[in-house]
Write a protein that binds this DNA or RNA. Structure first.
Length: 894
DNA sequence: GAGCACTGC
């Protein structure tokens, strides 16, 4: 701690410019050092080239998405034009109603607008993004495709007489009747999508049984055994025996001996097991049975908490032991293991934390990294670490378990490790594509649902629709309810169940209820249904081809959530959801051509699109100093790494040669973003540890604690404003909310009355407890507290977030102090309605949606900045604004 | 007066 103070004092003396220069030098030094190392290395390796290529690749990916969206738009316009031309002929013949005339005019306008935008785009693009080879090649392909598309349209056009077209336009008006039509091959020329969609069946995913002779042989064997058993003794079998028999029927079972032999021969093994092969439950047991558990624990990581828990429970049942004894799991807030544990399931983040205290994994004899293809941030770091550990621990067996697509890549990364394949247990799924692109995928999805419901027998299976977010799900639900109501009793019952993570859990439970006879269930889900939860009875999947993805811009430090086309891998994963219990069908709302040419093969790994502050701090505290050349499977952009290093330096977690300081070491102990950790550590100085802990716990929740149902918006808002009374912005609001809840002895009823999400705030409580326990380890006296002192709280917050300060400018907008970027208070903030907005703000995060918004803001006194971060702020910065303050607050009449 | 996909420590 003393050294930190010295550092701060030293910094006081540094002039601001000098300081800036120093920072630049620091970054430069880091770069130089790394480059020198590269040069040394590059004699035998071509790291430099790799590095450059990596950057280009990244740019390529962004570019390909741009091209994708643009092309999609272009084709929509072409189609729009064609259908318009068509209708125009009718227009001339005076056979259209006035509404349809209006619609055509509207269509023309849209086309003009889009074309205008495109031209602007092109002008901007010149010289920047054009990537000669690939772009041109794609262009021609696209042109061919379009030519093909249009020729089809010409043919279609000839087939239809004017009379028919007129009839069709009449049919369109009669909304109810046309829905009952059977799917046909006639294409209807619609501007707005509201009719049938044509699908083409393109392929069928392979089922498991036919290609797997080995498996069927064993099945016969078991069947025979079973029959023998029945003949020999008719005694009832116990529950456990039944489970054991079930184990033998899993697709992995016939490969047991082969697999164990492979493990014996190879230290690293890439295991390709398709879904339903039983690998997650069986492999650790096999390793245990053959005796690896005597050398050390068998670990198995999962990307999700629930998975770790449920798999551990299942395995303990199979082994007939109590959960938490021989078989256990460890996840955040819950350690269900003991001295006796030999098979341990855990989340990948938990293993990372474990590596911090046990860098060589010495208590393990085998480590299985499951679901590696998901490429979570945590598992990506694990790959790098584990690859290194394996080198100096030849006795450690490493198994990387992944789905089919990435196996080669994993094998290559792990020094050409051998690949072991296990077939899965999946039913075939027919894949359908649309004949032409759909403009409005939400509407298209709704129509497809109705099409399936009408044309497929009820009882043949439920429908699962993938949409991008809560809003879309809500609109889709409304449209569906309305249309089914219009159809009335002419169709059988359709149960509509929305699912997304923010939905209260009682409503989420609805999707698991069994579908009553004579009805069909439609589940409208976000990508939560892709991996996190499985629903039985789904036989039809509708894939819109989009999801929301986080992206991070290192230069501006801004995260944004964007609707993005899914990858081929993700789309296949979605399709797979239809074939879990019976053969299924998957309807993709895009063309087969787009699937092949426009979708990326794999989703961009998380590590390439996230803020790396935490990752860098963790690696540094593991003693890995050369981050630029850390063996990442996909290297994060150098920009992002440097920005994180710079930020950690500013926070005092790194010294001027990029080494971890004592403060940094303490910060790394907390499972928090670096800025939040810093606030916690500094809270002791301002004597408000308890308050900061609660606030930080609430801040780190991510999602909103305040529940806001549509029909009770005003009540919910007033409830929230109650907490805002007393000032201190969103931070103090959250704190008061938490303390009030705590004072009611954590009552659920209180949450209900105050429109607070029970699930979220309970999580805050867990986090707070965990942080409190960690305080002891980093020697923070957690008892000091200053209730109702906003200044103390905000000073502690500011010591972590002095980077995120914005100042009210003359125009009435805020500008960030660091980058002079114009930003706005998010409307969800309690300060957004303030008559007189504070001059200086500290914000928790920037999020780009429609504008650049600051989320979770609090007013501060600019003089604190000089006090707290003298190496960043100078007296002159602060005085400057005080001078402006007097005339402005009056002249800016609101 | 806008909008929060999903995990995880």
């Amino acid at each position: 701690m003393k050294s930190d103070d010295v550092l701060l004092q030293k910094n006081v003396r540094i002039e601001r410019e000098k300081d800036k220069r120093e920072r630049d030098e620091f970054v430069q030094r880091m770069l130089d050092r790394d480059q020198n190392k590269t040069r040394q290395k590059s004699n035998d390796e071509t790291v430099v080239a790799d590095d450059g290529e990596e950057m280009n690749l990244d740019r390529l990916r962004t570019e390909s998405r741009r091209v994708y969206l643009k092309k999609r738009q272009e084709r929509e316009v072409t189609l729009l034009k064609q259908s318009l031309e068509d209708e125009e002929e009718l227009f001339r013949n005076q056979k259209l109603s006035t509404t349809e005339r209006k619609r055509i005019e509207l269509g023309r306008k849209i086309i003009k607008m889009v074309e205008k935008n495109e031209n602007e785009d092109e002008n901007q693009d010149d010289g920047f993004y054009r990537l000669p080879d690939e772009y041109d090649e794609k262009d021609t392909k696209d042109a061919q495709d379009q030519a093909r598309l249009s020729s089809r349209y010409v043919e279609d056009k000839r087939e239809k007489s004017e009379q028919e077209l007129w009839e069709e336009s009449q049919t369109r008006k009669a909304d109810i009747t046309h829905k009952k039509k059977k799917p046909s091959n006639e294409k209807q020329y619609d501007l707005v999508f509201e009719d049938q969609i044509d699908f083409v069946m393109q392929e069928t995913t392979k089922g498991y049984d036919k290609r797997d002779k080995k498996h069927s042989k064993v099945k016969e064997m078991i069947k025979k055994e079973d029959e023998d058993d029945k003949l020999v003794a008719l005694k009832p079998i116990t529950e456990h025996e039944k489970i054991l028999a079930g184990r033998k029927k899993l697709p992995v079972f016939p490969y047991r001996e082969e697999f164990l032999a492979a493990v014996k021969d190879h230290q690293i093994l890439v295991l390709v097991g398709e879904t339903g092969s039983g690998k997650t439950t069986q492999i650790p047991q096999y390793l245990h049975e053959i005796g690896y558990s005597e050398l050390g624990k068998i670990g198995c990581t999962q990307p999700r908490r629930v998975a770790a828990m449920s798999v551990a429970a299942r395995v303990s049942q199979e082994m007939n032991v109590k959960l938490g004894k021989e078989v256990g799991y460890s996840i955040r807030f819950e350690n269900c293991t003991s001295e006796a544990t030999v098979i341990q399931y855990m989340t990948d983040g938990m293993l990372l934390r474990e590596i911090l205290t046990e860098p060589d994994l010495s208590s393990y004899s085998c480590m299985i990294i499951d679901e590696a293809h998901e490429r979570t941030l945590h598992s990506d770091i694990l790959f790098g670490l584990v690859k290194d550990i394996v080198r100096f621990r030849p006795d450690l067996k490493l198994i990387i378990s992944s789905a089919t697509m990435d196996a080669e890549k994993f094998s290559k990364y792990f020094d050409d490790a051998s690949i072991f394949m296990i077939p899965g247990r999946m039913f075939p799924v027919d894949i359908f594509y649309t004949k032409s692109p759909e403009a409005d995928y939400v509407d298209a999805a709704v129509v497809t649902v109705l099409q399936i419901h009408v044309s497929q027998p009820v009882g043949s299976g439920d429908v699962l629709v993938f949409l991008t977010g809560q809003e879309e799900i809500e609109t889709a639900t409304e449209i569906l309810i309305q249309r089914t109501r219009n159809l009335g009793s002419r169709i059988s019952e359709l149960l509509i169940c929305p699912v997304y993570a923010n939905l209260p859990s009682e409503q989420q439970a609805k999707i698991f209820e069994k579908t009553p006879k004579g009805a069909r269930k439609v589940v409208l889900a976000t990508n939560i249904a892709e991996t996190s939860l499985t629903i039985d009875g789904i036989c039809y999947v509708i894939d819109t081809g989009f999801n929301k993805q986080k992206s991070y811009n290192a230069r501006s430090g801004m995260e944004s959530l964007v609707v993005t086309p899914v990858s081929q891998a993700a789309s296949n994963q979605r399709a797979g959801r239809a074939g879990r219990t019976a053969p299924g069908k998957c309807f993709r709302l895009f063309t087969a051509w787009s699937f092949q040419h426009e979708l990326d093969a794999n989703t961009i790994p998380e590590i390439l699109r996230t803020n790396l502050g935490n990752v860098v701090l963790m690696l540094k505290s593991l003693g890995i100093n050369d981050l630029i050349h850390f063996d990442f499977m996909d290297k994060p952009p150098a920009d992002a790494l440097i920005r994180s290093l710079e930020q950690l330096y500013a926070l005092g977690a790194l010294n001027d040669v990029g080494e971890l300081t004592k403060l940094g070491r303490r910060m790394a102990e907390f499972p928090l973003e670096p800025m939040l950790s810093k606030s916690v550590i500094c809270s002791e100085k301002y004597k408000c540890v308890s308050e900061v802990l609660s606030t930080v716990a609430m801040l780190s929740l991510g999602s909103s604690v305040f529940y806001r149902p549509k029909e009770k918006k005003i009540m919910a808002d007033t409830a929230r404003m109650n907490f805002a009374r007393g000032g201190g912005g969103d931070h103090a609001t959250m704190l008061r909310c938490y303390t009030d809840w705590a004072s009611t002895d954590y009552s659920d009823g209180w949450c209900f009355e105050n429109f607070v999400q029970v699930r979220s705030i309970r999580r805050a409580r867990d986090i707070r407890e965990q942080l409190e326990n960690l305080c002891e380890r980093v020697e923070i006296d957690k008892t000091v507290s200053k209730p109702d002192d906003n200044d103390a709280l905000l000073k502690a917050i500011t010591s972590g977030f002095f980077y995120n300060v914005a100042k009210l400018g003359r125009t009435g907008d805020y500008q960030t102090v660091k980058q002079q970027r114009t930003v706005y208070i998010h409307p969800s903030s309690v300060l957004s309605k303030e008559e007189e907005p504070p001059l200086w703000l500290v914000y928790f995060e920037l999020a780009f949606t429609t504008k650049e918004f600051m989320r979770q803001v609090a007013p501060i006194d600019p003089s604190w900045l000089v006090e707290i971060a003298p190496h960043y702020y100078q007296q002159s910065d602060v005085e400057d604004s005080k001078a402006k303050k007097m005339p402005k607050s009056k002249s800016r009449g609101r």
